[in-house]
């Protein structure tokens, strides 16, 4: 499998505070990779650094092309869709407008219309609410909307920041099932950051464990899930 995303010696800073201390990892095309770690380990920062939303140094290559020093909006045009923490819903706009915004960089109008229908098939609840103001959706529905909005880009890589946050366990299962399906059927590579390690490891095929801004462990998701020592010392279950 070819490498889609390659991150080398990534260091990121919030003002004077360094949040990432030379982080390196890679993600192969078509894989579903998860980044695990405790609160404050640097998971969100890693995703934000990939999209240049935080000051960082080091090498980030997407499909062989360097992403450093590009603006967030131009990185998106490479086919990287980022579902931020807090979902980033356009709360004052309708559900359908949110989906249209996901495809705002695309020119194929017919494709956009059919993709909106596809999203409604994936997430029927969005169809029911398509004229509703997105801010009135429940947390779970907004997370579905955020994923659907990201997919409207027809991304090659989707970055998901704690999709399970604040959602009921049943909703999370449902969401993860859909993510797996998208990964398999639509061939979208996914990098998902999670605190819910157990669930993420079930879903993913590759996993990295990150601690205070460094990768401390990497490997096959099943191996990590089966290794009791790792689970106990790093993942806490």
């Amino acid at each position: 499998m070819t490498t889609l995303l390659n991150v080398k010696d990534l260091r990121a800073y919030y003002g004077q505070v360094q949040a990432l201390h030379g982080l390196s990892f890679s993600l192969s095309e078509g894989s579903l990779t998860t980044l695990l770690g405790a609160n404050g380990a640097g998971k969100t920062t890693t995703l934000r650094a990939i999209c240049n939303m935080v000051r960082s140094t080091g090498g980030i290559e997407f499909d062989g092309k360097p992403l450093n020093h590009r603006s967030t909006e131009s990185i998106v045009r490479f086919g990287i869709a980022h579902v931020p923490q807090g979902r980033g819903t356009f709360t004052t706009m309708t559900v359908e407008e949110n989906l249209q915004l996901g495809a705002i960089t695309r020119k194929d109008n017919a494709g956009i219309i059919s993709d909106i229908e596809r999203m409604y098939a994936h997430f029927p609840v969005l169809k029911q609410r398509h004229t509703q103001q997105a801010g009135t959706l429940s947390g779970g529905e907004q997370q579905m909307l955020a994923v659907a909005r990201a997919l409207m880009l027809r991304p090659r890589l989707m970055l998901l920041d704690e999709p399970s946050f604040g959602l009921a366990p049943l909703v999370v299962r449902d969401l993860f099932r859909i993510l797996g399906k998208i990964n398999r059927e639509d061939k979208v590579s996914i990098l998902v950051v999670e605190q819910n390690a157990q669930l993420a490891l079930e879903l993913a095929d590759h996993a990295y464990v990150i601690e205070t801004g460094r990768i401390v462990m990497s490997g096959n998701a099943k191996d990590i899930a089966n290794n009791e020592e790792i689970r106990k010392s790093y993942l806490g279950y």
Partner: peptide, 24 residues
């Protein structure tokens, strides 16, 4: 219009707007 939609998005949630590729 697309550009009108983009303008509204950029004004209401700039960070999300950048994440869908809008030059806010």
């Amino acid at each position: 219009t697309k550009i009108g939609l983009a303008m509204r998005a950029a004004a209401s949630v700039p960070e999300s707007a950048r994440l869908v590729g809008i030059n806010t």
